[in-house]
């Protein structure tokens, strides 16, 4: 079980920024195809997002899976709410739902 401190830390991360992406690697150097797809979608939508590299932080890597009851990385959060992993983000992007979500939630644009 991940400890309470990690859980609280994750809660802070998802509340601090409008869009938060837990991924393997970084947007510039993604270390996994699925993580890369999601960060590219966010770039394409031109929304500001904060990414966290779970490969640098084993507590985070395990804790995030328990936090959202979701077994894989990447994980996308918008306004503190878990949106999904690569499949769901891609499906929502292709249907236009992701753009709608960003607009509805009044997410900050990338400057």
């Amino acid at each position: 079980m991940s400890d309470q401190a990690t859980n609280d830390r994750i809660q802070d991360y998802v509340n601090k920024d409008d869009v938060v992406l837990f991924m393997k690697g970084t947007p510039i150097f993604p270390q996994c195809g699925f993580s890369s797809v999601v960060s590219q979608v966010l770039d394409h939508l031109q929304v500001k997002f904060q990414s966290y590299n779970v490969l640098d932080d084993m507590d985070l890597r395990q804790g995030i899976k328990e936090f959202s009851d979701w077994p894989t990385i990447p994980q996308l959060y918008v306004k503190g709410e878990f949106v999904g992993g690569c499949d769901i983000v891609r499906e929502m992007f292709e249907s236009g739902e992701l753009q709608q979500l960003m607009t509805d939630k009044n997410v900050a644009r990338a400057s």
């Binding site: 077994p71 894989t72 769901i88």
Partner: peptide, 18 residues
């Protein structure tokens, strides 16, 4: 929701996913 649907499938895989 999509997330719930996927979670139902992951649960059926009994922790093997990932």
């Amino acid at each position: 929701s999509r997330v719930q649907q996927h979670q139902m499938v992951y649960k059926s895989l009994k922790g093997r996913m990932g």
